[in-house]
Design a protein around this nucleic acid. Structure first.
Lengths: 124, 124
DNA sequence: TGACCCAGGTACCTATAGGTAACAATGGAA
DNA sequence: TTCCATTGTTACCTATAGGTACCTGGGTCA
């Protein structure tokens, strides 16, 4: 019943593919997956590398990604608690397109901001 | 002052790269860019291909993308009005990573849904 | 006897993305 | 003279993602 090689169609509003797109649309998912693609990290490290996340929101994001099979959460019965997050194979496969997006964003910020300035001044 | 080959850093909360990620996080951007990557389209055609968009929201999305230099809006002084949307070079360069994301989404829906079922039933 | 560390949890608030429904403007067709 | 096509706009409402601030629990270190 699982692992159907079923192919979705993002243009169908009723296709669950939309759900996947929504997850990627999540404000922090891209950043978290990107950071984790470099290796296993603990909560606090994650928080430090992804600038600006509130702990509550980071927890939410991590739980959602765990639920979707993108990452694994490992709890070590220690004191103080130690929890590690690492990507699954599925997560690693997602890391590639995400890296492409991130790369585009970093490489084209200048053009986008320039277009924005130009547009705003012509409308003003 | 424009077109700086400045490279952003998505992990810096104050970096405008975040703005670009936010735009991609927009619910309809990915779909609109994807559809337009196949060629120029009119408003109604666009609306038909991207299932489930309300006209107001489509207008908002298109304006935002125009502002960011991703697409061009051409108005023909006809009656009834005719407006065409096409990607710019910048938009076409974005279409590639977006296609990768979309491809991933369509190809891995099955795995994600399976993980979700498994997670939900183990928590229940 | 505190104070600290880690990984969150809880309660609460709000901005805004997104949605619904109805209307506008124009000229040609029926 | 009423209707229709086309591309939106306007007013209005709401769900929820996201944020702030503070709490918890239990070893350890001083």
């Amino acid at each position: 019943m699982e692992g159907l090689p079923l192919r979705g169609d993002v243009f169908d509003p009723d296709c669950p593919t939309r759900v996947v797109l929504d997850r990627i649309g999540d404000k922090w998912t891209v950043l978290v997956v990107s950071v984790l693609s470099t290796g296993t990290l603990r909560f606090t490290e994650l928080r430090a590398r992804v600038g600006g996340v509130a702990p509550k929101v980071l927890t939410q994001t991590l739980r959602a990604l765990e639920r979707d099979g993108i990452l694994i959460r490992t709890i070590y019965a220690q004191v103080p608690p130690r929890v590690e997050y690492q990507l699954t194979d599925l997560g690693r496969s997602l890391a590639q397109p995400i890296a492409a997006i991130q790369d585009w964003a970093e490489g084209h910020v200048g053009s986008v901001l320039a277009a924005r300035n130009s547009y705003d001044s012509s409308v003003a």
